[in-house]
Design a protein around this nucleic acid. Structure first.
Lengths: 213, 213
DNA sequence: CGAGGATTTGACCGCATGGTCAAAACTGTA
DNA sequence: TACAGTTTTGACCATGCGGTCAAATCCTCG
């Protein structure tokens, strides 16, 4: 057989042991290449060379380059979700605590997986569909604002937070979190804990009223 | 003569009227194409077609694609500087006022020049030199933090601002400002004034102490 | 007009890209 | 051993890329 039926969605059988391992290996090397050379520099040839395999093998395990790049996003998101799930011991009692936990969790994941997150950011910001539109557009990452906006609305309902537009605040939080990726990728010796403390304090002040309650 | 001496830096004579106009025209169309199709989709062929000229003409007026892209950045930065200069009537008296002015000025420019700024962001985030490193790296945009950090340090010295890391706060401000570009590019009907007011309030609370003085 | 520089075209080059495929190699089973 | 299914290779393809160049055109001024 010349191509894998699973790559074209014609089969939903259990993936072989070999297949799973090979896909994981390709994903790892693809992440490395994207992180090192950027979206434009991540060619299938370069990824194959980096992994020590032939280019055709990538086409055998993935339907195409876009499929591979989307798989990177899915893989890192899944790992990030697991990281955050294992980290959360119990639900914070206050909205401020929830926001703090959100920031600390996400920044900790980025600090310990900067290359993976960097590759994802690269793909998300650049991958376009056939019509030339971004695959991961504003509407897409608006979905990721949901959790944050929930925290903000709860805090405002309880009077813990001041009045502000939850959407704008969510955008700001996500922008600062994603920006941390570039900081740590640009200079890997940044102090994750110090940065986290600063950001937590920043948004603590930004969300709460100035007057003491 | 087969190529323009000015594109290869072999002449510093006054540019012709035709040359200046042609360069400006190419820049405008290049900005359009980058804004519409992203960095990866902005080929010389596409830019030439969009401008209704031949591809060779671009090579005649610019030393190469990289030169053209850097010219986009320089052009928009120059225009932005002029915009902000004309906007500033007089120096704000307080650090809080300076920060507010900084935010309002930059967000106003983005709101009225979203495509230009979007193209610049695309180039800055993607253009790499021959060794594969980003041309506009962390060290480069750290320079743009200077003005913000000056405002923060002045405010802390006068006791107007609380104690925080000026570098982290500057990164946060720039991230939120640049993020606004994507918001307005993704949906051009966003309310610039409302967003600006929210961001001003956000960083006003973030920088000032909670206790009333 | 016509000389000469400035401008513009369109054909062309070498190269890297994403993708395909027949053949080979490998693997397990009988 | 022979067989069948899976996995892997390496050569190959069409396409688009950035860039070059000889030739054609335009423009200005004597």
């Amino acid at each position: 057989m010349r191509s894998n039926p699973r790559t074209t969605g014609q089969s939903d059988a259990e993936p072989t042991f070999t297949e799973a391992a090979r896909r994981a290996q390709i994903l790892r090397h693809a992440i490395d290449v994207v992180a090192d050379h950027g979206y434009a520099g991540a060619s299938l040839n370069r990824i194959a060379e980096h992994a020590g395999i032939s280019k055709g093998l990538i086409s055998y395990h993935f339907a195409g380059k876009d499929d591979l790049l989307k798989a990177i996003v899915l893989d890192v998101f899944t790992r990030g979700g697991g990281f955050l799930y294992e980290r959360e011991t119990r639900k914070p009692a206050t909205a401020g605590g929830a926001l703090r936990s959100y920031l600390e969790g996400h920044l900790a994941f980025i600090g310990s997986h900067s290359r993976e997150v960097g590759a994802v950011v690269e793909v998300v910001r650049n991958l376009r569909n056939d019509e030339g539109r971004l695959v991961y557009d504003n509407a897409w990452d608006a979905e990721t604002y949901g959790e944050l906006m929930g925290i903000f609305e709860a805090g405002q309902a309880s009077g813990e937070f001041r009045e502000f537009d939850p959407r704008v605040m969510a955008i700001a939080v996500r922008r600062v979190i994603d920006g941390f990726t570039f900081q740590v990728m640009g200079s890997p010796d940044v102090d994750v804990a110090a940065f986290t403390a600063e950001v937590v304090a920043l948004f603590d002040h930004a969300t709460t009223p100035r007057e003491r309650s």
